[in-house]
């Protein structure tokens, strides 16, 4: 590590997610953005990253080993198919890899549920934007209830969903479904996605429906309110906008606003997964710091 105790980080991918991640890293007291990587020097996102003061390369993932910097954390904000190849290569480098693509390769993490797992895995997956939004709520509710069916409908503003994400809709749906099954123990799960071009763009929204017995609206409201408060410790724009029980079905709507960065406020989909990524990386940084202090003393 170079300056003080900050972690050296690299970002793979300079699309909408990668660039927002860069702005969040630059704000972090624990992380130094050392390199932004694309596969092509002509990449427009790379120029934006350079304009933000980052060192960039169009040389692809293999640039990392050749680089003079030793990377502690590598964020993969490319796409699901590329992540498989990236991981094969990165595994030998020893950095913590935080995957923001829906590749389903790494250990799946939702920070408020199992965030500390990042300390014992080398490749952690942040599932998807819809997964990061729905899973904390679903995990809490399934501690109390045993629903027979879970459905999650995500609506993101068109302009907040870039080309890589549009080519990864299958992975988005399948990875989010698999994660919800894993975190809730409920096998029957359905995930749907809508894109909205409305003007002004609608705030990122996740609508959750559950079928089950004896849902008590007051109990559900209490649980989801508590969860929202926890999630807001790292994603300030997380709000429960509806919570009801009708005909034995529980319905919870969540909206996430992006806050404090270059991305517009409607793009909560970018904000929540990137905020989760930064949160995990900072926890990792703090744990490393503790270990080093112990080693020194």
């Amino acid at each position: 590590m170079n300056q003080g105790s900050n972690l050296n980080v690299a970002v793979l991918g300079a699309g909408l997610i990668g660039l927002d991640l860069v702005t969040k890293i630059k704000r972090s007291r624990f992380l130094d953005c050392q390199l932004v990587v694309a596969r092509d020097e002509q990449n427009r996102g790379l120029r934006s990253a350079a304009a933000m003061g980052c060192r960039t390369t169009g040389g692809g993932v293999t640039s990392l080993a050749a680089d003079p910097v030793n990377f502690d954390v590598v964020f993969d904000a490319s796409n699901a198919a590329s992540h498989a190849a990236h991981w094969e290569y990165l595994e030998t480098l020893g950095a913590l890899v935080i995957d923001l693509t829906p590749s389903r390769i790494g250990h799946m993490i939702a920070p408020t549920v199992n965030g500390t797992d990042a300390l014992v895995h080398r490749n952690v997956s942040l599932i998807s934007c819809g997964g990061q939004t729905a899973i904390p709520v679903l995990h809490a509710l399934t501690q109390r209830y045993s629903p027979s069916y879970i459905e999650v409908v995500t609506t993101a503003a068109s302009m907040s969903v870039g080309r890589a994400s549009r080519l990864n809709l299958d992975e988005y749906v399948q990875t989010t479904q698999a994660a919800i099954r894993a975190f809730t123990g409920v096998p029957d799960v359905k995930v749907l996605l809508n894109l909205s071009p409305a003007e002004p763009p609608p705030t990122f929204r996740v609508a959750i429906s559950l079928i089950g017995d004896d849902f008590d609206p007051d109990v559900i409201r209490k649980h989801v309110t508590a969860v929202a408060e926890e999630v807001r410790t790292f994603a300030a724009g997380f709000e429960i906008t509806a919570c009801s029980v009708v005909d034995g079905k529980a319905f919870i709507a969540i909206e996430v606003e992006a806050s404090g960065d270059l991305i517009p406020s409607h793009a909560g989909n970018l904000d929540i997964i990137n905020s989760a990524a930064i949160f995990v990386a900072e926890q990792y940084a703090a744990a490393r710091l503790v270990t080093e202090e112990r080693t020194v003393s």
Binding site: V153, S196, P202
Partner: peptide
Amino acid sequence: RRQAVAGQEDLIAD
């Protein structure tokens, strides 16, 4: 007015 698209049935309750 909200320019709902097909598939956004969850907006109706809202």
